[in-house]
């Protein structure tokens, strides 16, 4: 069996994941109950960066991908980054009316 992350690392990761989810929710201004405004680009960037970091932690610690070769790590992290890039591209294209 591959070396596991260990209980301490798992708990630290969980705390980070909780915190990053909180960061995403605050960045997305979920406190705006009546005044629903478009997010600033900084907020959008923060939501996406927090999401990328959460996905990275789940892959590396929960799924224990850190035990695999750099090639496998690159494939999975690359796929996450491509996915987030597509999400960001669609969002920005809509925001700046790039699709007419």
């Amino acid at each position: 069996m591959t070396a596991l992350p260990g209980t301490r690392r798992l708990f630290i990761t969980w705390v980070m994941l909780m915190g990053l989810t909180g960061v995403s929710m605050v960045s997305a201004r979920l406190d705006q109950t009546t005044d629903w405004q478009t997010l600033s680009l900084w907020s959008v960037a923060l939501v996406l960066v927090a999401t990328a970091f959460k996905a990275h932690r789940v892959l590396m610690v929960y799924l224990n991908l850190r035990a695999a070769t750099p090639a496998w790590k690159g494939i999975f992290i690359g796929l996450i980054l491509v996915t987030l890039a597509l999400i960001a591209a669609g969002y920005l294209a809509g925001r700046f009316n790039l699709m007419g």
Binding site: A28, W36, L39, V44, T51, A55, L59, I87, Y91
Partner: peptide, 14 residues
């Protein structure tokens, strides 16, 4: 992992 990506896409980015 899928939900982590789905949540901002559907709920947060506006």
């Amino acid at each position: 992992l899928i939900w982590i990506l789905l949540y901002p896409l559907i709920y947060l980015l506006r």
